[in-house]
Each structure stands twice: as structure tokens, then as C-alpha cells.
Design a protein around this nucleic acid. Structure first.
Lengths: 340, 340
DNA sequence: GAGTTGAAGATAAATGTTTTTAAAAAGTAT
DNA sequence: ATACTTTTTAAAAACATTTATCTTCAACTC
């Protein structure tokens, strides 16, 4: 049984195809009586306009590609949720691509996205390199999350990681810490580079000595952070506070500290980065930075939709500030001004 | 600047459009010299076949819809990863839908998926009801994850939660526990129903008294599990072991136990359910059940692709067993047979 | 040298919409 | 009845492909 087409409906309702089309797309342009007749047969015959034919005619498929480095990551999930929701609210579908932090696959996706049915792309890269947006056909709307692009027609929305990292170091410093360690994610990624920039900048601005030994990569894994923390604890002058690049890695770091018989925050003060849903339930509860993932997704989607409506508007560049989330792991003392 | 079409290529290469098409889709059917000439101009003009026109002609869009209850959930992320990978490997795109555990939105997606460009749907529901697959147009391939359907043409792949739950209770019982509690997720969901079946079944088979007080809902949230555990600890006869429906909820439960000054596993033995990546790093490391999420996604995708190739094949029904993952939280004793 | 065969490529139909056009029909006010 | 407006129609173009059918032409057979 073939699907019913607009022709079938037209024949059954004894009108022209044009009338059926107009009834569906611009109801006011057709007299009430015919409109009802048409709508009736549409219902009866269970007619659904073929989306592909429609897309071909209108040169618009009503879906947006979303390239992410790693769905498994909870922050990424929030980005996806935000983007998907906003897109869905405006009748767009989300076509997901998971690059797995692999630059080759990012390139690959950029290649095949040409041959795939999307009106635009939201790009979240994990790799250090700026995504190969230049490869994209220029009639595709594009928006980068947490990444810059030289291209005039590519929008970008970013979380201000550098500023956030300054916030964190500043907080620790105000609490009297001088030796502040930093367990990074993969050092190739811009997420890490941004944070590092904020970290270094803080030392420079305060004319404190910057010690490179205190920066060690946890490579974005719990195990890696465990090892990294062990390394920091092995230094002759251990740091008294450590900032860990992600909340997930913080789990490994906490475990390493306990493993060494030290206690948190008395011996070592800790902060994470992300405010993942479970960080509040770590032992001890984790001081961290609220990463606006959902908002990032939402705003990037909005940006894409906006550009689709207005292809020639100027480049948009949104920057979202991060808030510090103070919990027990950083060792606040009662009476200390933590503006809570 | 309009995108170059097959016509443009044909004109430039001084052949017919048919020849260009055949060169691209069935190179052997065209003489070497013409083939080279065509391929050359294709390259020069940067011609990409329009996927929409192709889809219209072939009645095939090469993408699959994936409806999930909650992307934020890490197990869901693994399912998505598995499905996406398998689909991508076979040239299919993944169109994501996030229902947010809302039955109304599940229905909504089933409605709009008609008007959206997919060849099939993979369905994983969070709500108790079987997904409204009957609503789907019958020429859409469909596969259900963790859910049954009466329909002959709908495949299903499931994790054997009931059997897994038996495994867990059995394990606790062998370690001498009689009063085994169970903190469930949302009780309306089939995930919970299945586990409950295994839980009850165990008691029946072993002629042990089943105490309904020991089953309390944590509603799938960390907070909920915290409260649920508090409730269990308030009973005159506390359970000596508690199974928690998800690893994430276990965080709340562990926190509640510590909050009451009890220790794990000495006072109370604990197991989770899922084997989430971080469960190994809880304090103490969490005994849990390996949930085959990635595999679930992968197999469902394979099932869909297979049906697309062979639409009239018989219904497929895959069942994946779960393995127990023994760690410290369940209080194994050295020398005890835990087949590790 | 006439007829047959086969390969290579051209032509045109088909996919299901939307939209434009010119024309016709139907309804409304003067 | 006339003029005018609103509604509808039929037909065709356009979107970019694939493919069934037809044509051409050279090689081969007898």
C-alpha cells in the first residue's frame, strides 16, 4: 500500500492539488467550506505531506547537525539537551554526531555533513584544533561552542573558562593558599588551554611565582587524575590546594588523597570544575564552578535558528560567565567572606 | 552562488546527466575514458550530489530516529554511543529525540516522526507504558530497547534486568543476609518493574518472607535515594543489605548511611545497579551490575539496519544477560567464594 | 555487403511537493 | 444586468536525482 500523496487527496476531495497545498500551508487563502472539505479528506486518508519532497522544493530540511566530542560526558549531555530542546521547540530536528575527541572523525563529519540533510551545524570540538568549518559548504549556518573562528559568517557562544579559572585561583588565594596545583584535562584541548591561561594570568597579575611542577595532566580520566594527584603529593613542597579540571576527574584525585592518608580539606583543599549533578554528593561535597552547559546548547541553537532566518546578519559572539559554587572540599571557614 | 548540480557537470563534461549519475553510482558501467572525464569535472566543480533529491528518488533518507527518555543519564549516553557508532559505520545518520521521561512527548515524537526524514526508529522509553509504536507508519523499521511489543514487525533487544536482580539478591543471601532492602527508581517504569520481579521471585523461590517495607522508591534521584535510605534506616528491624536501583542513586544512599554514623559495608552492605564509570571510585567502591548499555545501542542499530535490508524477516528478540561486579561495598570477606 | 550483436550513452519519465500563471468560475455590490 | 472581487482551476515549472527504455554506432558474422 503506497502512501497517499497530495494528488490522491486532491482527487478524492474534488479540488486541485494547488488548493490542497494552500489549505495546508496558508489556510486563510481558501474559502471556509472548501477548507473544511479538504481538511476532512486529509484526515480521512491520513495524508502526511512527504517531508523529502517538501524539503527538495523549499530547499530546507528543518534539521540541524550537532557535532560533539563525547556524548558520554555529562556536560556534553546537557549541551545536547539544551540545543535539542530549543531546536525542537522551533520544529527542527537534531542530527547527532559523536566524534569521540578524534580530529579525524571531526573532519570526516564535516565532509559527510555536506551529503547529509541539515540546514546548519552546531559544533563542539574536543580536539585542540579549531574545527574544520572552512570545509563546510557556505550555505550551511554554523555555530561554534567554546571555540573561536576567523570566519565572518560563523557564530560562536562560549563559556568564559579563563575568567572562571581566575575566580577559582583567586578564591584559594584569599583563603591563604600560595601553592595551588592544577590537574588538567588533555593539554591539547582548548578547554584546558583556556583554563591554563586563567591560571597563569592569576599568578602574573598577583606577582606570585608560577611553578610548572604544579600543573599536571589527568588526561580527562578518573584514573589519570588519580595518578596526577599522586604525582603532586610526591613533590617535596606539596601544593596546599588543587584545582581539578573536571568534577569527574576530581573523583580520582579525592581517592588518591585519601589513599595517601591525607584529609580533605584540612591537609589539601580541592575544587573541581563543572558542577556536575553528583559533585554535591562527593565526600566531601565538592567546591566547583557552575558550567552553563544547558545554556550553551540553548543559545547556540537560538543563534543558528536566528541566522537561518537572517543569513546576512553580522557575526554573533556570546560569552557566558561562570559562577563559583562553594562547598566543603575547599575548606571554607565559618565567618570567612565567601559571599554565599 | 548556486550549488553545482548534476546538470552543470553534465554540460561541462559534455555528456548526459545519466552518464554522470552512472559514473558516480556504477562506475563499471561506463567506459574508462568517459569515466575519467566525468570524475575530473566532478572534482573540478566540487560537485556533491544533493542528498534530498537523492532521497526523494530512492525513497530512502539514510537516517534513523533515536528516541530516548533522558540524554543526561550516563547509561543512556552509552546506548546512544553504541547506536550512533553502528549506524554511522553503515552510512546512516542519527536523529535524536529526548522525551525527558514524558509520555506526552513520546507520543508527540511518534507523531512528528512521520513528517521527519527517517527510515526507521529505535525506541527506548522511560515511561511505564509501551511506546506508541502503533502510531508509527508501518513502512518505518522499528526496534524497541528494553520494552516489549505485540507487533510482529517490531524488533526488540533487552537487558535481562529480572535475572540480574536475582543474581544480586542471591549473592547477598549467600553472604548470610536475610533482610535485604531495595531502593527503586520510579515505580511506574518497567525498568523498576522488572527488577522488582526478580527481587520478589528470589524470595518466593527460596521460601523467604517478603517484606514490603523494605522496598522504597528513590524516584531515580540522588536526593530521593538519600531520603529512601533514611526511611530504611528508621525501621525497627533495619535491613542489613540494600540494593539500589541505579549507581547514581547509590551516591545518595551512601551519603545517608554515613550521615547516620553507620559504616559500609560493616553495618550495611550495599550494591548499585548499572556499573556506571564512576562507581568504582565511590567510597567504598560500589558492588554493582554491569548494564550492557553500549551493546544495547549497538545491537538495536544492527537490528534496524538488518530489517531495512530485509523488511519481511521474522521478528527478532534479543536478550542480553547482566554480570555482577563485586567491589567493596557489598562486604565480601577474604576466602569467601566470590568467583572473582 | 547485409544483417546481427553488444556496448555506450542519450532521452525522458518518475519521485511528491510548492508556486506561478492565466483563465475560468462563482459570488457581490451597484 | 454590469462590473468588480474573490475563489478556484488546470497546467506547468522547479527542485536534483535515478533509471527504464531507446538510439547510435562500431564490430563481427556469414
Amino acid at each position: 500500500m503506497r502512501k497517499t500523496t497530495i494528488k490522491d487527496v486532491a482527487k478524492k476531495a474534488e479540488v486541485s492539488v494547488a488548493t490542497v497545498s494552500r489549505t495546508l500551508n496558508d489556510p486563510d487563502s481558501v474559502k471556509k467550506s472548501t477548507r473544511e472539505k479538504v481538511l476532512d479528506t486529509v484526515e480521512k486518508m491520513e495524508y502526511d505531506p512527504n517531508p523529502v519532497a517538501k524539503a527538495l522544493r523549499l530547499n530546507k530540511v528543518n534539521s540541524i547537525g550537532l557535532i560533539v566530542p563525547n556524548i558520554t560526558n555529562t556536560s556534553m549531555a546537557e549541551i545536547i539537551r539544551g540545543a535539542h530542546e530549543e531546536l525542537g521547540d522551533h520544529g527542527y530536528n537534531t542530527v547527532l554526531f559523536n566524534s569521540g575527541e578524534d580530529f579525524r572523525r571531526e573532519e570526516h563529519f564535516c565532509e559527510i555533513i555536506q551529503n547529509t540533510m541539515v540546514d546548519g551545524v552546531i559544533f563542539v570540538t574536543g580536539t585542540g584544533a579549531t574545527p574544520p568549518v572552512e570545509m563546510l559548504s557556505s550555505d550551511l549556518a554554523a555555530c561554534l561552542i567554546n571555540r573561536k573562528s576567523e570566519l565572518e559568517y560563523v557564530d560562536q557562544v562560549m563559556a568564559d573558562e579563563e575568567e572562571g579559572m581566575k575566580l577559582l585561583t583567586y578564591h584559594f588565594n584569599r583563603m591563604g593558599h600560595k601553592r595551588i596545583g592544577f590537574i588538567t584535562g588533555n593539554q591539547q584541548t582548548s578547554a584546558t588551554k583556556n583554563k591554563l591561561k586563567g591560571y597563569k594570568n592569576f599568578f602574573e597579575n598577583n606577582e606570585l611565582e608560577f611553578n610548572n611542577e604544579y600543573v599536571v595532566s589527568g588526561n580527562w580520566t578518573i584514573e589519570g587524575a588519580f595518578l596526577a594527584m599522586k604525582e603532586l603529593l610526591g613533590l617535596k613542597e606539596k601544593p596546599t590546594a588543587v584545582i581539578i579540571g573536571t568534577d569527574t576527574m576530581a573523583l580520582g584525585a579525592l581517592s588518591a588523597i585519601r589513599d595517601s592518608g591525607l584529609s580533605i580539606p584540612e591537609d589539601i583543599a580541592i575544587s573541581g570544575f563543572d558542577n556536575s549533578p553528583s559533585s554535591e554528593y562527593y565526600t566531601p561535597p565538592l567546591t566547583t564552578l557552575k558550567y552553563p552547559n544547558y545554556k550553551l546548547g540553548k543559545l547556540s541553537a537560538r543563534s543558528i535558528l536566528n541566522r537561518l532566518e537572517n543569513p546576512d546578519r553580522e557575526k554573533k559572539n556570546i560569552n557566558i560567565p561562570l559562577d563559583i559554587m562553594i562547598r566543603k572540599s575547599c575548606g571554607y571557614r565559618i565567618g570567612f567572606d565567601q559571599n554565599r
